[in-house]
Design a protein around this nucleic acid. Structure first.
Length: 719
DNA sequence: GACTAAAATT
C-alpha cells in the first residue's frame, strides 16, 4: 500500500491532537527535527508559527502551564514566540513573569514593546511604567500611540492622553486614537468633549459614528442621534443596534421596533444576538407579550445559537410576564448557562413567591456569586422567613454592604425594628460601609416605630457619611420626621432639597396631611405643579387624605373627579376607599354608597372598612351591618367588623344583639390582636400589651401608675 | 500564517 510522505507539520498536528504528554511532545519534536532534512530545519518556520499559535491559544484559555511548556520546549524561538509568551503571562495576570520574558528577549521589535505596554495597561493600570517604556522606544507605530492613549484614558488621565494624542503623527491619529479618546470621554459622561474630538476628525469611521450615536442616545438626545444615523454612509450591525437600543431604552417602542424591522430588510447587515437581547429586554420591560413570544418563536425557527446573554434576556422577559414555566423551559434548553442565567431564574421564582423552588435552584448552582446569595436572602426575608435569611447570610462567604443592607431592610419590612438597628451596629463594627439604601431603610424603621431619637441618629450618620445630599435619603428623612410627628424638621429637610422629585412632594404632602396640616398639603400640591412636577396616583392619595383630615369635602370631590379628566389618571381601589372615607365621615352616606356601587372593580376591604368606621361614629346601624357583612366575606379572620358592630349595638342599647355578635366571633375562634404601646427608656424599647404582665417590672409599674392616676384624679385632670 | 488599537446587550 502506498502512502504519501507526511510533512513534519502533520506529525506535530497529529501529536497535539492526541494530547500527548509534554515529555512525549518533547521527544516527538526532537524526533521530527532529527528526521527532517537540514534544509527544512534551518527554516522550520511553519513549526515555530504553529507553536506560537498554540501559546497564544492556551494563554487566552487561561491554560498558562500548557503555554509555558510549549514555549520552554521550543528548540527555536522567534521574537514572535517571546512576544506571545509575554502576552500569555499578561493575560493571566502575571505581570512579573511578563516583565521577565520582556527582559530576557534576545531582540525586541516595536510589536514586543507594544505588547509590554499593553501588559502594563491591563495589569492594575501600571500606566506610568508603560509610559516609561513608551518614551524609551526608538521607533513607534500606530499601535504604540493607540495603546499608550488607551492606558491613560482608562486611568482617567485625559490630560496626558490628550498630550500624546497631539503628538501622534497625523497619519496614525485617526480614526483609532480619536476613537479611544471619544470612548473614554463618553464613559466618564463627557459628551461635550467626545463631540469636540469627533467634530475635529477628518477621517471618521463607522466606529466613531456609532460611538457618538450611542453618546447622544444615552444623554436622551435621540433626535441628534437619529440625524447622525441617517447621514451615515456606512452602517453596520453595531450602529443599527445602538440606535434601536437608544429608542427602546427611552420607551419609544414604535420607533425602536420599526427600526428593527428596517434593519432586518437591510442588505449586508445581519441581526446578531446583541440586537435580539435588546429586543427581548424591551418586550419584558414594556409588557409586550405578543411581540416577545413572536420573536422567541422566530429565534427558535431560525436556529439561532443561544449565547448566555441572549438566553438570559429571554428568561428575564418571561419572568416579567409571569410565565415562570416558559422561563424554566428556556433555562433548561440553554446549552451555555452562566451565573446570570441561574440568578435570573431564581429571581423569577421568588417573584412568583415560589421560594422553595428558588432555593432548590440556589442549592443546585455549580457556583454562586454575591448576586445569588443576596437574591436568595432577599427572597427569604420577603417571605417573612428571617431565620432562614440570617442562616444564609452567615453562610455567605464574602459579605458586602449590599448583603448587610438586604438583611437589615428585611428586618424593617418584617417590622423587626430592634433587630434592624442592632444589625446596623454590627455592620459598623465590622467596618462595612453602609450605602444610601441601608440608611434609607433604617430611617423608615425609625419612622414606622416612631422612635425619633433613632431617626435623628441615622440623620447624623448620613451627614457624617456624606449621604446628606442623596435624594432618596432626603426623601426618607422627610418621611421619618413627619411620621414621628415632627413636621417642622420634615419641612426643613424638604426645603433643603435642590431638585425635589415626585416622591419628595408626595412624602411632604402626606406628612402635612397626617399631621393635620390639610391646607399646607393642598398648597404644596398646587406648588408642585407650578414647578413643573406632574402629580402621580400616589400624589392624589395624599391630597385626598389631606381633604379627609380637614373635612374639605367639596375640594376632595373635585380633585377626585379631576384625576381622570384633567390628569388622565384612572382612580384605583385606594382612591375610591379614600373618597368613601371622606364622604361617609361627613355623613354623606348616599353619595358614598353610590360611589361604591359605581366602582369599576369589586370594592376591596379598605372601602368597607372606611364605611364601617364612619357608620360607627354616625350611629348608622343599617350601614354598619352591611359593611361588616362585606368585610367578613372578604377577610373572614379579621376581628374588626365583629368588634365594631357589637360595640355599636351596645351603644344603641341593643345588648342582646351585641352579645350575639360577640358569641358569633368566639365560635369562629377569631382573636383581636391586642392593643399595644411602648416606652423608650435609655435606648431600650419597653413593650406593653393590654392584659400582659410579662414585663419584669410589671407589678411596680402597675402600682406607680395607679398612684399617678389617683393623684391626677385628685388634681381634677379628668374633669 | 504569529504580536499590538477601537463600538452595542441581560
Amino acid at each position: 500500500m502506498l502512502t504519501k510522505p507526511k510533512s513534519p507539520l502533520y506529525y506535530v498536528h497529529f501529536l497535539f491532537s492526541l494530547k500527548f504528554s509534554i515529555s512525549s511532545l518533547h521527544t516527538a519534536t526532537k524526533d521530527i527535527i532529527v528526521r527532517t532534512s537540514a534544509k527544512t530545519r534551518c527554516k522550520n518556520s511553519k513549526f515555530i508559527v504553529y507553536c506560537n499559535t498554540q501559546i497564544t491559544k492556551h494563554g487566552r484559555n487561561g491554560n498558562i502551564k500548557e503555554a509555558e511548556s510549549i514555549f520552554n520546549r521550543m528548540p527555536f524561538k522567534s521574537t514572535v514566540s517571546w512576544t506571545a509568551m509575554l502576552t500569555a503571562y499578561a493575560e493571566n495576570r502575571n505581570i512579573s513573569k511578563a516583565r521577565e520574558v520582556f527582559a530576557k528577549m534576545p531582540e525586541r521589535t516595536t510589536s514586543s514593546y507594544n505588547a509590554m505596554i499593553t501588559a502594563y495597561n491591563t495589569n492594575n493600570f501600571m500606566v506610568d511604567e508603560a509610559y516609561e517604556l513608551f518614551c524609551n522606544m526608538s521607533e513607534r507605530d500606530a499601535v504604540s500611540y493607540a495603546t499608550m492613549i488607551t492606558g491613560f484614558v482608562s486611568k482617567g488621565r485625559f490630560d496626558k492622553a490628550l498630550e500624546i494624542y497631539e503628538t501622534t503623527p497625523g497619519k496614525w491619529r485617526e480614526p483609532v486614537c480619536s476613537n479611544v479618546l471619544i470612548n473614554g470621554y463618553l464613559k466618564v459622561g463627557r459628551l461635550d468633549m467626545a463631540v469636540g474630538i469627533f467634530k475635529g476628525m477628518v477621517r471618521r469611521d463607522v466606529v466613531s459614528l456609532s460611538l457618538i450615536v450611542d453618546g447622544y442616545c444615552k444623554s436622551g438626545r435621540i433626535m441628534e442621534a437619529r440625524n447622525l444615523f441617517n447621514e451615515m454612509v456606512e452602517r453596520n450591525v453595531v450602529t443599527w443596534t445602538t440606535m434601536i437600543n437608544g429608542y427602546l431604552k427611552m420607551g419609544y417602542l414604535i420607533d425602536g421596533f420599526g427600526l428593527f424591522s428596517m434593519m432586518r430588510k437591510e442588505k449586508g447587515v445581519l441581526v446578531n444576538s446583541t440586537t435580539l437581547t435588546i429586543i427581548f429586554d424591551a418586550c419584558g420591560h414594556f409588557d409586550r407579550y405578543r411581540e416577545g413570544t413572536q420573536m422567541h418563536g422566530l429565534v427558535l425557527k431560525s436556529g439561532f445559537t443561544f449565547c448566555a446573554f441572549l438566553g438570559n434576556s429571554i428568561i428575564t422577559m418571561y419572568c416579567r410576564f409571569g410565565c415562570i414555566g416558559a422561563a424554566n423551559l428556556v433555562f433548561h434548553m440553554m446549552t451555555r448557562k452562566d451565573l446570570v442565567s441561574w440568578n435570573s431564574l431564581i429571581m423569577g421564582y421568588l417573584q412568583e413567591n415560589e421560594t422553595e423552588k428558588a432555593y432548590e435552584l440556589f442549592e443546585k448552582m455549580p457556583s454562586k456569586d454575591v448576586v445569588s446569595w443576596t437574591t436568595m436572602i432577599m427572597g427569604f426575608s420577603g417571605e417573612g422567613q428571617t431565620d432562614k435569611a440570617i442562616e444564609l447570610f452567615r453562610l455567605m462567604p464574602e459579605k458586602d454592604d449590599v448583603a448587610w443592607t438586604v438583611v437589615i431592610s428585611g428586618f424593617v419590612s418584617n417590622e423587626m425594628y430592634e433587630e434592624a438597628f442592632s444589625w446596623f451596629i454590627d455592620m459598623l463594627q465590622k467596618s462595612v460601609m453602609p450605602n444610601s439604601l441601608t440608611l434609607s431603610s433604617l430611617l423608615s424603621a425609625s419612622a414606622n416605630s416612631a422612635i425619633l431619637s433613632n431617626g435623628q441618629q441615622i440623620h447624623a450618620q448620613a451627614i457624617k457619611m456624606c449621604f446628606e445630599l442623596d435624594l432618596s435619603i432626603q426623601n426618607s428623612l422627610v418621611s421619618m420626621y413627619s411620621k414621628c410627628g415632627n413636621v417642622v424638621d420634615a419641612c426643613q429637610v424638604f426645603m433643603s432639597i435642590k431638585e425635589p422629585n415626585v416622591v419628595s412632594f408626595n412624602t411632604m404632602i402626606v406628612g402635612f396631611a397626617h399631621n393635620g396640616f390639610g391646607e399646607e398639603a393642598l398648597k404644596l400640591f398646587v406648588k408642585m405643579q407650578s414647578e413643573g412636577q406632574e402629580p402621580n396616583p400616589i400624589t392624589f392619595l395624599a391630597v385626598l387624605s389631606a381633604c379627609t383630615h380637614v373635612g374639605l369635602i367639596e375640594v376632595g370631590w373635585e380633585l377626585f373627579k379631576s384625576m381622570k379628566y384633567l390628569y388622565n389618571i384612572e382612580p384605583g381601589p385606594d382612591h375610591y376607599s379614600c373618597m368613601v372615607d371622606l364622604l361617609s365621615r361627613a355623613g354623606l352616606f348616599d353619595k358614598a354608597i353610590d360611589l361604591i356601587y359605581s366602582m369599576p372593580f369589586d370594592p376591596h376591604s379598605g372601602v368597607w372598612g372606611a364605611l364601617l368606621g364612619a357608620s360607627m361614629t354616625h350611629l348608622r346601624l343599617d350601614l354598619a351591618k352591611l359593611a361588616a357583612q362585606q368585610l367578613i366575606k372578604l377577610e373572614p379572620d379579621s376581628a374588626a367588623p365583629y368588634v365594631v358592630l357589637s360595640n355599636l349595638y351596645t351603644i344603641l342599647g341593643k345588648k342582646k344583639e351585641g352579645d350575639k355578635v360577640r358569641m358569633d366571633k368566639k365560635s369562629k375562634r377569631i382573636q383581636k390582636s391586642p392593643g399595644c404601646s411602648w416606652l423608650i427608656v435609655k435606648d431600650k424599647v419597653h413593650l406593653f400589651l393590654s392584659g400582659d404582665q410579662s414585663h419584669k417590672d410589671s407589678e411596680e409599674i402597675r402600682l406607680t401608675l395607679r398612684t399617678i392616676m389617683k393623684e391626677m384624679e385628685e388634681l381634677g385632670c379628668y374633669r
